[in-house]
């Protein structure tokens, strides 16, 4: 493992592990409430933050965190008070965010689109020691929220209307999910890149679903897979000299295909086990509407 002799690779691997944990950990709630592309939208908005960081000589990671958190709150507000069509408003936000990023980077002294590339597609060599500090702090926040509040976030993402009647602060929790997703985007930005970050939030969860029946197991498999592909993608990227983000995402999709192929025989085995457990099988349940059918036609 000669790659561990290089400080930049140590940092890249630390970042990869943190990305592998956090992206599926928040992504599972986005998938659960059927908004899997929210991470994609936040990624676009984060570009404005990166651009502002260059322009104002501030840390692009912290700037992207601030701007994408703001953008995610705005998306959540659009969802509540959707006066204009929600999807149109979101489109404005996505493209506005992207255009803002390109504009600010080019306004920065000596800036050009080349500065953006490492943020868009991820890069191993550019993860600085100060980035690692920021990424670690942000990842800790994501883990505390997604694990500590898992029952509350599960309830809100499963059935918002019902969650309201259990007395949960539904709006506050929705905002928390949005901000946590934004934070995760900036955690993942340095290694995976803003364009591909959403894939690592969604695809491990989709792959895990193929094998599991419960939320808890889906969560565990998705995080394990996330760490696995992030680390192996980073190592592959070092030896083959290919971009880490693309390598990680392609590995994740390969895992999804493999899990899907495994799912059918697994489901058959489970069905056989269930049939053995209940030899008589379930009572036949037909959806017959009550009180209908007999009697009524006779009088006619």
């Amino acid at each position: 493992m000669d790659l561990l002799n290089y400080a930049f690779m140590q940092r890249a691997l630390i970042a990869a592990v943190l990305v592998g944990i956090t992206a599926p950990a928040i992504g599972i709630y986005l998938v659960q409430r059927r908004q899997p592309l929210m991470g994609d939208g936040i990624g676009h908005v984060a570009m404005t933050g990166v651009g502002l960081g260059f322009l104002l000589h501030a840390s692009p990671v912290w700037m992207a965190t601030a701007v994408s958190a703001l953008g995610s709150v705005l998306m959540e507000l659009i969802r509540w008070y959707g006066k204009t069509r929600g999807d149109i408003a979101l489109a404005m936000l996505f493209y506005g965010g992207m255009a803002g990023g390109v504009m600010f980077v080019n306004l920065a002294p000596g800036g050009s689109n080349a500065n953006l590339t490492s943020y868009l597609f991820g890069s191993l060599s550019t993860v600085s020691p100060s980035d690692i500090t920021a990424i670690t702090v942000l990842a800790a926040f994501v883990v505390v929220v997604t694990l500590g509040l898992r029952r509350q976030l599960f309830a809100v993402s499963q059935d918002e209307e019902f969650a309201r009647v259990t007395g949960l602060p539904v709006r506050a929790l929705n905002l928390l999910i949005a901000v946590t997703a934004a934070v995760t985007v900036t955690v993942a930005m340095r290694v995976v890149g803003l364009i591909l970050v959403s894939a690592l939030m969604v695809v491990p969860v989709a792959a895990a679903q193929q094998l599991s029946r419960s939320f808890a197991v889906t969560f565990a498999i998705a995080v394990a897979l996330g760490v696995g592909v992030a680390v192996s993608g980073t190592i592959t990227s070092y030896y083959q000299d290919v971009p880490p983000g693309a390598t990680i995402v392609l590995l994740t999709i390969a895992a999804f295909v493999a899990f899907t192929a495994l799912a059918t025989p697994l489901a058959r085995r489970r069905a056989r086990a269930a049939a053995a457990a209940h030899p008589a099988g379930d009572p036949a349940e037909c959806t017959i509407p009550a009180m209908r059918g007999t009697g009524e036609e006779i009088g006619v």
């Binding site: 599972i28 998938v31 659960q32 409430r33 059927r34 899997p36 509040l149 898992r150 029952r151 509350q152 599960f154 309830a155 993402s157 499963q158 059935d159 019902f162 969650a163 259990t166 007395g167 949960l168 969860v205 679903q209 599991s212 029946r213 419960s214 939320f215 808890a216 889906t218």
Partner: peptide, 23 residues
């Protein structure tokens, strides 16, 4: 059902949150 698999127990447990402290 939601967008992610969940067991019957997991779904029913969410109704108990109103009786718990901090879940």
């Amino acid at each position: 059902a939601g967008g992610v698999p969940a067991t019957v127990t997991e779904v029913v447990s969410s109704g108990r949150l109103s009786r718990t402290r901090f879940g």
